[in-house]
Design a protein around this nucleic acid. Structure first.
Length: 470
RNA sequence: GGCGCCGUAGCCAAGUGGUAAGGCAGGAGACUGCAAAUCUCUCAUCGUCGGUUCGAUUCCGACCGGCGCCUCCA
């Protein structure tokens, strides 16, 4: 079997990937900061992790995935303070929304969703280790910082060593206590606001709270070990977040932290990065009110390679909705078919090879999806022949199920209640009778009234079929 | 200012040193009482200008245009 290959930001090259133990991929995905519902830009990255997870499993690996929930940070504290709540009161409902959105988008649950506040002990321990190694220091402001010039590899991931800071860039400001402007906080001394909203814990350095970067290192190493296979996240996290994770993890353990760093590109709207401060965010709830199916969103997200920016637009969504409609119709047709052709087995095998090659090639989902549409077209043509070959049909069904197990782009059927169903069936009986006596005007009238209720009728050799749309 | 990415048909988007997958939209046809669904055919020379090469969309350079990171950020 061809090797699985992934682009590694660490080396800036596509490399063969195998988990360190040859069997189970231990992957850590940077998750949401839960102060606000995640927007579609965030979910593009989470969908990228979902694709990675499913593609790895399709390739035969086991996966142990962790996605953190950052439930203590500046924004959360700010919000809690404004609303006179504890940070937990702020984060709890948002976590609920995140999980609901995740389920709506059919993102397969990771094995763990650790909350930062549940790992304070591990975080304090990590800071202590760094202090003992002499790479952390407590400054006058009582916060503890990581001294980047004590870590030789600093800047390796983001190539910071070759960078220069923008002239006049805002580096110092409130960070006057640090020895070096680029040193980052491991442990932040508590403020009265922190105390008031429950964002302060005891530590050897006094009351305080963990720095953001520290949270991920501590949780990743606690749950997955000191060297993990894959660390994913949005491209914007590459610096400084991931750079700092590497520094503090490797300085503490002396071992490589993550073997592969994989970054997903941004989702743009109106040609700009989707971000709250740009004012162009859309979230899952917006899609639901627009009746955009999860299948369509997944199709759209997978139609562009994860390392390329993707511009979200209404027309793109409509194209995906239509594409996925076709996939859904095909799925039903395949399920209902009573026989296939010999050739379908060949088509299925070719499809399976191309589909899986594409995914193994640095998660080339656009290519995999293209293969699926070729497959759908070819199998539809075979199905039109109304053959009776059982093996061919089975092969096609299996190949489709296997591919859809990764993409998951078959839309849900519209829910129909029993009374509507009975009414539609009655209408179709009347239409059948009208057609029987060649009263097409009456038959068309019935079909038109059904369409008014979102019922689309399709005549087939086996009689009329119908489905609810919108 | 430093680092990096991108520019392929009306829209979205793969890809290769030897004349371009797929989706949406469009056109023609088959099937149908008419539709719908499905099928068939059809629709591009790859931002511009140079260079390397027998040959470049694919390599190199310049330019134009767009985006991102360097500060919280998926």
């Amino acid at each position: 079997m061809p090797e699985f290959r992934l682009y590694n930001s660490l080396t800036r090259a596509v490399e063969p990937f195998v988990p360190a133990d040859g069997e189970t991929v231990r992957m850590y995905a940077c998750g949401p900061t839960v102060y606000n519902p995640a927007h579609l830009g965030n979910f593009r990255t989470f969908l990228f992790a979902d694709l990675m997870r499913r593609a790895l499993m399709l390739a035969g690996f086991k996966v142990r995935q962790v996605m953190n929930l950052t439930d203590v940070d500046d924004k959360i504290i700010k919000r809690a303070t404004q609303q006179g709540q504890s940070i937990r009161e702020v984060t709890e409902p948002v976590i609920g929304m995140f999980l609901a959105d995740r389920d709506y988008l059919r993102i397969e649950p990771a094995e763990h969703y650790p909350r930062a506040t549940d790992f304070i002990v591990e975080m304090v321990d990590l800071v202590r280790r760094l202090e003992m190694k002499g790479v952390a220091y407590q400054a006058e402001d009582k916060s503890v910082y990581f001294a980047i010039d004590k870590f030789a590899g600093y800047g390796r991931l983001s190539r910071l060593d070759t960078r220069e800071l923008k002239a006049g860039a805002r580096v110092a400001q409130d960070d006057y206590a640090k020895e070096n402007a680029q040193d980052f906080a491991l442990w932040k001394a508590a403020t009265p606001d922190d105390e008031a909203c429950g964002a302060a814990w005891d530590s050897p350095w006094g009351r305080g709270r963990p720095g953001w970067h520290l949270e991920c290192s501590a949780m990743a190493m606690s749950l997955l070990g000191e060297t993990i296979d894959i660390h994913t996240g949005g491209i914007d996290l590459q610096f400084p977040h991931h750079e700092d994770e590497i520094a503090q993890s490797e300085a503490a353990t002396g071992k490589p932290f993550a073997r592969f760093w994989c970054h997903g590109e941004f989702l743009l709207t109106d040609g700009a990065k989707m971000a709250k401060r740009v004012g162009n965010v859309a979230n899952v709830q917006d899609l639901r009110t627009q009746q955009v199916s999860a299948a369509a969103v997944r199709h759209l997200m997978f139609s562009t390679h994860y390392r390329k920016q993707l511009n979200l637009s209404g027309t793109a969504l409509e194209a995906s909705m239509e594409a996925v409609r076709r996939v859904g119709d095909f799925a039903e047709r395949l399920a209902a078919a009573t026989g296939g052709t010999l050739k379908m087995a060949e088509i299925a095998e070719a499809f399976r090879g191309e589909f899986e090659d594409a995914l193994r090639d640095d998660l080339n989902a656009p290519r995999a999806q293209a293969a699926l549409f070729v497959f759908i077209n070819q199998v539809n043509a075979e199905l039109d022949k109304r053959g009776g070959d059982a093996a061919g049909l089975t092969a096609a069904r299996e190949a489709f199920a296997r591919a859809n197990g990764v993409l998951d782009i078959v839309p849900d059927r519209e829910g129909v209640d029993a009374s509507l169903e009975a009414w539609v069936d009655g209408q179709l009986e009347a239409r059948k009778a009208a057609r029987g006596r060649r009263d097409f005007a009456a038959a068309d009238q019935i079909r038109k009234s059904l369409e008014g209720k979102g019922i689309v009728v399709e005549d087939t050799p086996q009689g009329a079929r119908w489905k609810k749309v919108r």
